[in-house]
Design a protein around this nucleic acid. Structure first.
Length: 255
DNA sequence: ATGGTCGCGGAGCGA
């Protein structure tokens, strides 16, 4: 069984690459972020024809999350239950079989210290409480998506250049650590401890060509989920070629 | 420090 997280940076612009990926990898569940499409313009038809059930949470121009699943998607809940944050479409909880999934597009934060950064920190605090309340770690829990935070220097192509910068600051990493302290495990690091595993590369600097990237898309899982996991890897093929997203899909494999 | 490229929407913002 394969579960995927992928920030597609517009589902409509990315449709050819999404369909190619579904055909090649045949994932069971796909968590999408930055769909950038209101529900009425989401390309439902082609995805359903490809064999997927859909749960979508769209917004005009920005944000947007969705789950595609071969099996039925149940108990869908949107948002963090906090009016300070839920005008933005960033959070979708759902169950697929015995998997409890939380699909996230975490606030970017732009630059450490600015208003957007303060908003990110408040958002993360609220996310922590949401997970504590709604995602029982005795179950098979998958908290995944674009976190816009690296864990440590291994996740950063130039740690000196990025030290203290957005996605790499102590404050963001401390907020992420508080979430991990609820009893979640960074699934990729359970299987791979080497550096230079990235999930995002800047379009502007053509970062992918020289693998100048960051690992900011994660699978945080409970122990019962980890017990049935066999690997996590980044699908670099989807990041190359024509009109890719700036993020690569990350694939969690279950026994 | 700045810029570079995307996507959306049709200028400038967000990333």
């Amino acid at each position: 069984m394969k579960i995927v997280t992928w920030n597609v940076n517009s589902v409509r612009a990315r449709m050819p690459r999404v369909l190619e990926f579904l055909e090649r990898v045949s994932p069971d569940v796909v968590c999408l972020q930055e769909t950038k499409a209101l529900d009425e313009v989401f390309p439902r038809g082609v995805l359903e024809e490809a064999g997927y059930n859909l749960a979508i949470h769209g917004q005009k121009t920005y944000n947007g999350v969705a789950i595609l699943s071969k099996k039925p998607i149940e108990d869908v809940h949107l948002g963090l239950g906090d009016a300070r944050f839920d005008h933005e479409a960033r959070v979708m909880a759902a169950t697929v079989g015995d998997l409890m999934i939380l699909n996230l597009y975490v606030v970017n934060g732009k630059e450490v210290g600015c208003d957007k950064f303060a908003f990110k920190m408040e958002w993360l605090k609220t996310l922590r409480d949401y997970i504590d309340e709604h995602m029982p770690r005795t179950e098979k829990v998958i908290v995944t998506g674009d976190f816009n935070i690296t864990f440590d220097a291994r996740d950063v192509y130039d740690p000196e250049k990025w030290e203290g910068k957005i996605h790499c600051s102590d404050e963001e990493r401390a907020a992420l650590a508080e979430i991990m302290d609820l009893g979640l495990i960074d699934a990729l690091r359970h299987f791979h401890d080497k550096p230079e595993i990235y999930t995002w590369w800047d379009f502007r600097t053509r970062g992918f060509r020289d693998n100048r990237g960051l690992r900011i898309d994660h699978f945080l899982v409970s122990q019962p989920l980890l017990d049935v996991a066999t690997d996590v890897h980044v699908d670099l093929e989807a990041r190359g070629g024509e009109k890719p997203s700036d993020h690569a899909p990350v694939i969690l494999t279950l026994a």
